[in-house]
């Protein structure tokens, strides 16, 4: 009974994760400008990754595999906001996409 519960929870998490990954893809294509698209990428990096990794770790039981899965998630949550920030700030400093105000830098 318990095992069945774990299995179905894992399936639910994986399906939700799949849905979010599709959502991310759609957002990446649909949103009109670069800065908005970074928000779509945020969905994939945070909750989508978490759901899929939780779903997988429920299937593996508790062992080194689970721990490695969690390490992957922790590192992703460390590095992905850093690269998003890096990218957005690079774009901003280069003056990209800042049309309406005077802070545009000519470089």
């Amino acid at each position: 009974m318990w095992e069945l519960f774990i299995l179905y929870s894992s399936y639910t998490l994986l399906l939700l994760g799949s849905f979010l990954s599709l959502t991310f893809g759609l957002g990446l294509l649909r949103f009109p400008d670069f800065y908005s698209r970074t928000h779509a990428a945020g969905v994939a990096d945070t909750l989508c990754a978490a759901l899929i990794i939780f779903g997988l770790s429920l299937q593996s039981g508790f062992n080194l595999v689970t721990i490695k899965l969690f390490l992957i998630l922790i590192f992703l949550w460390f590095t992905s906001p850093t690269s998003s920030f890096t990218l957005a700030s690079t774009a901003y400093r280069s003056g990209y996409g800042i049309k309406n105000n005077s802070s545009k830098r000519a470089e």
């Binding site: 800065y35 928000h39 945070t46 949550w77 906001p81 700030s89 400093r93």
Partner: peptide, 11 residues
């Protein structure tokens, strides 16, 4: 702020 989708730190 960056980790919560919908907001991204720029500078």
């Amino acid at each position: 702020i960056t980790l919560t989708p919908g907001t991204v730190t720029v500078a």
